[in-house]
Design a protein around this nucleic acid. Structure first.
Lengths: 110, 110
DNA sequence: ACTTACCGTAAGTCATCGCTTACCATTTGT
DNA sequence: ACAAATGGTAAGCGATGACTTACGGTAAGT
């Protein structure tokens, strides 16, 4: 499945604290690169590289506006991760319930 | 906020593909270390180290059972990430709607 | 008691990643 | 046309991390 690669890219993109910081700055709406970098402890090229990773993961959308480039959070990319976690959540609860039921019956292992 | 550190740990834990593989093996229910390592391309100590990271992140629970140690997915740890993504999702949609409305009005930047 | 199975930890190696300083392209302002 | 602003890319460096082999420690089998 190639949507598994998408999950992988999205996960590694969000794994970095600096990139999560960038995401937080964009929660209020789209911003150009310079505005993001100005409020961050790293250099502008570093921010540019992070924006690249986030865009490739599908978490951000880019809108060139004249001289600048506006970055915004892409809801679709976030939703992909949400679905992955929802599936994980369902399986975890099911396994949990099954284990509890088996223990109640008194049979513990193979 | 210290629950931000929890998010960070959970993210970095799930960022590694091998660790996501381990998580997938545990979807059907708890398993001992050896059973996990036997179906994986890496050594058993490597699996042990990954299990450590996942446990520290709150994604796994450990249940010593005699000689072996049973690892299982912890629903609470998964839920923490779900909440983070839900918040991100909400903000993304709100920013999206606001941008669309502003564009409809014809005013684009400051 | 001895041996076997199961598992965590230590030390060391190699690749990956995030950051910086340069540099270049494109667009806006005068 | 020239100068300033905006931002993506290249090269190089230092740190983090994932993996291996080797070892120690506890529980189960004979």
């Amino acid at each position: 499945m190639d949507h598994k690669d998408a999950i992988a890219a999205t996960m590694t993109a969000l794994a970095d604290p600096t990139r999560r910081d960038i995401i937080d700055r964009l929660r209020g709406g789209p911003l150009p690169v310079g505005a993001i970098a100005k409020t961050m402890p790293v250099s502008r090229p570093a921010v540019s590289q992070h924006l690249r990773v986030l865009s490739d993961a599908g978490l951000l959308s880019v809108t060139p506006s004249g001289n600048r480039r506006l970055y915004a959070i892409a809801p679709d990319g976030v939703d992909a991760l949400r679905q992955y976690l929802d599936g994980l959540w369902d399986d975890a609860l099911a396994a949990f319930a099954r284990a509890a039921q088996e223990q109640a019956k008194g049979k513990q292992d193979e």
